[in-house]
Simulated assay, not measured.
Amino acid sequence: MESAAASILKRAVEMDKNEQYTLAFVMYQEGVKMLLDSMKETKERTRQKHFATKASEYLDRAEKLKDLIDNKKASGIYREFSKIENGSTGHGYASVFGRFLDATVTYVHIEDPYIRTFHQCQNFVRLCELLVTKCCALSKISLVTTLDTQDKNQIARLQELKQSLASHLISFEFIFSDTLHDRQILLSNGWVIKIGRGLDYFKPSNGKFALGACDLELRPCLETTVDIFHRSQLKNDDT
């Protein structure tokens, strides 16, 4: 537990220095929880005091980060930019932007020209699963993509997803654009996620029964950039 806490907090400090403040904030919180758990497990008073001191220091930094993020959001100047290296792992949707998905998200709008092939539609389903799991107040998802004139199953896949989301009381609308190029995910709580390759930044799995076949956190990635910033809230009828 102590070793795991040290590893997470070290990573939090690195993210903090790289101005990846939202990720650092989450890691500080997780690391502090582990330190407090370690403090409960030991009977040595010296170690208890050490864990308590360190937890207090990191918690104080986390609170300052929260204020910094809130102030930058209010000023419209908050931005995080990062790069996913070719062949790297640990960059599933939950890791890349899951921290922005919570009860404040009621509507999500996605623009991605490549929600067309079977695996691209599967990736979109994975995104929707994450949204449903994390956003308890979610009521609407909308998608703008391009029409694949060579694959008539594209519409059938999206219609099937529409029916599935409806069973969770979430409406899903999709439209096609011939000119769409940029990729972005807009959350109703104001966060905008732009991934250079859109949702399709994973390399093919090494096999149907290889690690990474199901869990995208274990799947090697293609090189891409991630740009996340905050703007005024997205209205429910925006497209």
Rank of each mutant, 00 (worst) to 15 (best):
V32D: 03
V32H: 04
M34A: 11
K40H: 09
T42S: 11
E44W: 02
R45Q: 13
T46I: 15
T46Q: 10
Q48A: 02
K49Y: 04
K49D: 09
H50W: 09
K54V: 12
A55D: 04
A55C: 05
A55L: 05
A55H: 04
S56W: 00
S56G: 10
S56V: 02
E57C: 02
Y58F: 14
D60G: 09
D60H: 13
L68W: 11
L68M: 12
D70P: 00
A74C: 05
A74L: 14
S75N: 13
I77F: 12
Y78T: 00
R79Y: 13
E80F: 07
K83E: 14
E85T: 10
E85N: 12
E85W: 04
N86V: 07
N86G: 03
G87M: 05
G87S: 05
G90W: 08
H91I: 01
G92H: 06
V96A: 08
F97R: 00
F97L: 00
R99D: 07
R99N: 10
F100I: 00
F100T: 00
L101W: 00
T104E: 15
T104R: 15
T104V: 01
I110L: 15
I110S: 11
D112I: 04
F118D: 14
F118G: 02
H119Y: 13
H119P: 08
Q120G: 03
C121Y: 04
Q122W: 11
F124T: 03
C128P: 02
E129D: 15
E129C: 05
K134M: 00
C135N: 01
I141V: 15
S142M: 02
S142D: 05
V144C: 08
V144S: 08
T145V: 09
T146C: 12
T146G: 06
T146A: 11
T146D: 03
L147E: 12
D148K: 04
Q150Y: 10
Q150C: 07
Q150D: 14
D151C: 05
Q154H: 08
R157T: 07
L158K: 08
L158V: 08
K162C: 10
K162F: 06
